[in-house]
Design a protein around this nucleic acid. Structure first.
Length: 475
RNA sequence: GUCCCCAUCGUCUAGCCAGGUCCAGGACACAGGCCUUUCACGCCUGCGACAGGGGUUCGAAUCCCCUUGGGGACGCCA
């Protein structure tokens, strides 16, 4: 096979997905997780989940729970973890001490207020706001309220060869002495990430390109520590429809919201994969295909908008492709939400094949199946007005007679009954089909009328026709 | 403001690295049609883009530069 085959089942590939539990897992984060997962699964490496909860104020437990639930729902299995950064402070402190010992870091006693003032002044003057190094050469020791900063080289450049963007370089002049330990003793993001990535032997860092600017800072920490660098791959952002950063304004933040809207995880994954990654003209991929065909080489460089309509179309397609058994099980929770607690399994399995091509989501699937389980008919206004009219009563009553004699009550036999019935009454099928549809389903749109009758069975069909007749007569 | 990144239909994208086969292909959406017991599905057709300007070259969507536009970062958030 291809050269890539040589790298398969390479246990040396280790990746991670490190969400922070300050919010739910959204589209952007899910795509990052997916690409990490695809890359790792293809090469037979190890995929680690790590929760970055060093921000004690903004992290919350429910978010962690939702993230794990989201990952599981999507089927993005991890091989190790979840690790929680909040439980690994010993590791970070050891790294910070090491940096201090090596004179690669120093204590800083500048107050947040002073820093903020200087930052604003610099911005006003059109300069890049960066720490001015006040405490850098003071040789200060720890004190209440002090922080630890990394000593960044004043000159030179720091660069890396990004697996999707190509070579990127920064002048060290642009960087400042970043804080690696807060005054409350906790490590900051950059320090914790690097310490963890080293500790977990991460070989490939695949993340959103909002981290491009963070990369040189993190590389500097690796260098100060004398540790080998991982490879970096920065994925282009997924933007909202207005082409700005994804945020609550764009609705449906959590991927769990997509689950609740009746999307299949596979459809979401497929849609996600196609934002940023492509494989020629192919649009649909099974999980196996995605794993097999994924390549960082074919990840684009430019940001993209997540196309909800395409997701819907994909979801409809995956529903059509799903087995009936799968859909029966998947639809039940949605029927429950509609108030149908314990749907008759036989009826549900009978109607679902006819609903597949008509449902773009599981919500629609449940709505389409609902009429099978509700005997108290509620007629859709439009259909009621248009089709349940006096003039049809006689035909419906005649039909009852014909239907009573139909046996077996299946599609094929029903069609025969109808051919005869249409002849006897000298009408076209459409004349009776729509009123009958409304009588049986309450709606003007439904699966084929013969399918509907067979699924409902003779008893319900006759009952509902009678109810419709009564309803019309009562008008 | 400074730095970094990006730039093909409304949207996702193929093509670009190795320039000609591209008056630019696919998908979604949209419009029209066919099928038809309704609604869908399916099928067919249509609409629709190389941001602008300079180069290089016999030839540029493809290479180079500038402009413009967009995004990101600049935090004791991650």
């Amino acid at each position: 096979m291809e050269a890539s085959h040589l790298y398969m089942h390479n246990p040396k590939i280790i990746t991670r997905f490190p969400p922070s539990p300050t919010g739910y897992l959204h589209i952007g984060g899910s795509r990052t997780a997916l690409f990490n997962w695809l890359f790792t699964r293809q090469l037979g490496g190890k995929f680690i989940l790590r929760i970055e909860d060093t921000d004690e104020e903004r992290s919350f437990g429910a978010a962690t729970q939702a993230i794990l639930e989201s990952m599981e729902w999507l089927g993005l299995s991890w091989d190790e973890g979840p690790y929680f950064q909040s439980r690994r402070y010993d590791l970070y402190n050891a790294v910070i001490d090491r940096l201090l010992d090596m004179d690669q870091a120093y204590h800083c006693r500048c107050s947040p207020e002073t820093l903020e003032r200087k930052r604003r002044e610099a911005l006003d003057k059109g300069l890049k706001p960066k720490y001015d190094g006040t405490c850098r050469e003071l040789g200060l020791g720890p004190a209440p309220g002090s922080v630890v900063r990394l000593k960044t080289p004043a000159a030179g450049t720091t660069g890396f060869d990004d697996l999707v963007k190509g070579p990127i370089r920064f002048d060290n002049e642009e960087l400042d002495d970043l804080i690696i330990k807060r005054s409350n003793g906790s490590p900051t993001y950059h320090l914790a990430v690097v310490a963890d990535d080293i500790d977990l032997s991460i070989t490939h860092v695949i993340r959103g390109d909002d981290h491009v600017n963070n990369t040189p800072r993190q590389i500097l920490i690796y260098k100060a520590l004398g540790e080998p660098l991982p490879r970096y791959a920065h994925l282009p952002m997924i933007l909202g429809p207005d082409k700005t950063r994804l945020s609550k304004r764009h609705g449906a933040m959590s991927v769990l919201a997509y689950r609740d809207m009746g999307y299949l995880p596979h459809a979401l994954l497929n849609a996600l994969a196609r934002v940023g990654w492509s494989y020629g003209d192919q649009e649909k991929f099974s999980l196996e295909e995605m794993i097999e065909k994924f390549s960082l080489d074919h990840v684009g460089k430019s940001a993209g908008v997540f196309n909800m309509e395409k997701l819907l179309d994909l979801n409809a397609w995956y529903i059509r492709e799903s087995s009936d058994e799968f859909l029966v099980a998947a639809t039940i929770p949605f029927l429950e939400k509609l108030g149908i607690a314990d749907p008759d399994a036989a009826i549900l399995s009978a109607i679902i094949p006819h609903l597949k091509a008509r449902s773009k989501t599981l919500v629609e699937m449940a709505e389409g199946a609902k009429f099978c389980f509700v005997d108290k008919m509620a007629y859709e206004k439009k259909g009621d007005d248009k089709f349940l009219k006096k003039g049809i009563v006689q035909l419906l009553e005649n039909l009852v007679g014909a239907l009573e004699k139909t046996d077996p009550f299946d599609q094929e036999t029903l069609e025969k009954t109808f051919i005869k019935f249409l002849e006897e009454n000298d009408i076209k099928l459409r004349k009776i089909a729509q009123p009958l549809r409304v009588a049986l389903t309450g709606k003007t749109a439904s699966p084929g009328i013969f399918e509907v009758m067979q699924v409902l069975g003779k008893e319900k069909v006759l009952d509902r026709i009678q109810k419709a007749v009564n309803h019309i007569n009562a008008k």
